[in-house]
Design a protein around this nucleic acid. Sequence first.
RNA 1: GCCCGGGUGGUGAAAUGGCAGACACAAGGGACUUAAAAUCCCUUAUCCGCAAGGGUGUGUGGGUUCGACUCCCACCCCGGGCACCA
Length: 847
Amino acid sequence: MPLFGAAGVADMNEKYPFQDIEPKWQQFWSEQGVFTVDTSRHEKKYYCLTMFPYPSGTMHVGHGRNYIIGDAITRYKMVRGFRVLSPMGWDAFGLPAENAAKQRGVHPKEWTYNNIRQMKRQLQSWGIAYDWNREIATCHPDYYKWTQWVFLKLHERGLAYQKNAPVNWCDYCTTLANEEVLADGTCERCGRTVHKKDLTQWFFRITEYAAKLLDDLALLDKWPEKVRTMQSNWIGRSEGARVEFTVAETGAPCPVFTTRPDTIYGVTFMALAPEHPLVEKLLLGNPRAAEIRTFIEKQKMVSAAERTDDATRKEGVFTGYHVRNPYNGELAPLWITNYVLMEYGTGAVMAVPAHDQRDFDFARTYGLPVKIVIQNPEGTLQAPSMKVAYVEDGPMVQSGPFDGRGNREAMHDVIQLAVDRGFGEFTTHYRIRDWLISRQRYWGAPIPIIHCESCGAVPVPEKDLPVLLPDDVDFKTERGNPLSFHEEFIRAQCPRCGKPARRETDTLAQWLCSCWYYLRYVNPRMTDAPFSRKDVDYWLPVDQYIGGIEHAVLHLLYSRFILKVLHDNGNCSFREPFGALFTQGMICKRSEKDGQLYKMSKSKGNVVSPDELIREYGADTVRLYTLFIGPPEKDAEWNDDAVEGAFRFLRRIWRRVYETRELLLSSRELKPDLDRMDPPERDLYRKLHESIAKITHDLEGAFQFNTAIAQIMELMNALDDLKVESTSSDQRRAVYREAIESLVVLISPFAPHIAEELWVELGHQPSVLSAVWPEVNPKALARDEVEIVIQVNGKIRGREIIPTRLSPKEIESNVLARDAVKALVAGLTVRKVVVVPGKLVNIVAAG
RNA sequence: GCCCGGGUGGUGAAAUGGCAGACACAAGGGACUUAAAAUCCCUUAUCCGCAAGGGUGUGUGGGUUCGACUCCCACCCCGGGCACCA
């Protein structure tokens, strides 16, 4: 143990030398392999996972919250005797690396690995506990080989397919997300005009898992309600009916999906999406063709920004055709409109202006009829005078056999009628769409597909993985994806027929890389498989997953999807990747420019660097403040002044141990004895055990680090109240020592460096992680007397000390017999007395 | 518009339906010091009062209850997410 002197005690001085002790203990943890995990079976395992970061450069203290919370949980569980798997890695593929390459000529690989080095150094300087032997980077061939393998598994199961999809296209930057297109229709980065382009792209059939993903949310009882609700809304199940309308003039089918079949007798027109396949047929020989084409072309030109604009007016064009309503044989004009989406349902909406606001707005604009089929309870609805659609319930009218029935009650029978007559069925629709995983980018895992003229899109055989991303690409190319100009990469042989073929140049979305990384950490260096089924079945689901709320839907839903596919493929036996989820709030800071509160970010110029703070106050201070700032699930405002307070608190603990070191060492063998304590000793001893109870509760439940730390501060205040010196009685010194020693263990998950140092100072062998978490002595909590509040009619009127052993009945008579209480109720008639033992007595009295 | 959060001192916040403001930060006063820093002590929701004491107070208005920051109803404000979803 070279780090310590002969007595096992490091140099100690009055100043709290965090500059010395923090690097020392970080080195100790690393050299001793304290966080190196043996993943073989163990009686208590715990997998604590913090979302891995995108290596964007350097981190600010807002990023730190994530890792500090995860580390506090990891260290707490270790002290509680768990074997904790706490790994870290890098979500290392992504756009910023490629932008850096284009702008500054740095290779994305170099840029990424430089950032990884920076951020790893920061994590280590925070003293975060990771098993770095398990470090992974998704851009490393040993990792993305298996990301490609995941793609192949989905492909084998028919869950990966190609289809055309329109994208925002910039000639220089390739495909853009909606948010990257500015309001004026230009590219955010290079300013070129963005246009719509149809591209053949790869999709995952996540819609096939919609029902499972929705139903299994019920299993996730340790997830925040909020996240489950968001996922449920995103998947968006709606029950309804599919009904076959037909184009009256041509007999062509025109099916619709509706959640309101009860309004079907009120259809007064049919609304098609501009992209609806029927539209082309209706244009043939159509005298209105020119007008219709103009409308459709105009809709195609509408930018993403405009489409999402609230103010967009409902517009449409009449096709000249009609549809026949199979329920009543009525004809309704067929329109093409801008408010119907091809992506949802069948791309055709049966419009019922009387009972749907959007249809109502459209009908009023174009003078289409409004037919009431659900009356209000008063029976006063009249189509000409309606100002808004009537969307409430009521009796059905003008609805053939259903007249007079309640619309909700009749819903089922309406659909049943269509089933019986063969023109409709019960169906469920989901809002979620298939997942687009193609990226027209260089810095990603190549999609393992070879396009052959005769065999089509052929998957690369597993034995040929990984499909390596070439290093020598030309980033100065002015157009598109550099991979698509790399002849050597593109040239391939069809794995099926052996003829020359073309390699796919799209890469996989980085989302996919982060969908399965939690499995890889269990067997990070395995070469013949991504992970071992036996090992992941033991270590997963993740016991505690920690990350930002911004991933509530995409990352967390995609991960659940991929895991379910792997489960169905026989690769693991559990159905959900993350057993418990904790989402922390953002750290905000007031902007110096405008005084407003913003999420900490470089662009807002309100970032606080951890490096400087660690230099000035030490990592333990930054950690303690970050955890103390407020409830971890809520957003919090960073306050530089308050950091100082955390520092002062740690220094106070340090100084107290320093000032009483002789006494602490000389009392090592003493044991506190409740029966021999005097009142001040008894008070500290009680405070200690109350603190153990409170802190343990806060860490076992909802991770209330802020109140746990407040309790440690209270314990410290109580310690200051007890006078001790080397000549104090054995009992006093024993109580004092137990309180200090427990405090060091209790604070160790939050401020581990100082805890390690003081633990050794108290005469123990390192590490404090092998200490035993203090246990509550129930006898210490007991009190003989307690002060209770006396209320009269709910108002506080006095306080009385009473023995704790009294029953509620005895408390009542005891209290009422006291002079002070008699005076309070003098002249009043006592009607009722409410007794809450240990808290209060409320006397209900009237004059 | 819809969905999900949230409104408590100068600030961050705490509180199973039971003493609102624990624990801190900031501020003010004091001790120590030649001085400063550091440290320690005191005050600190608000109004009336010298004080004892009393009134008011958890976004607003109602309700339930012996008792409401907490539960119910309506409304206002702030934050986040989604959005022509049939």
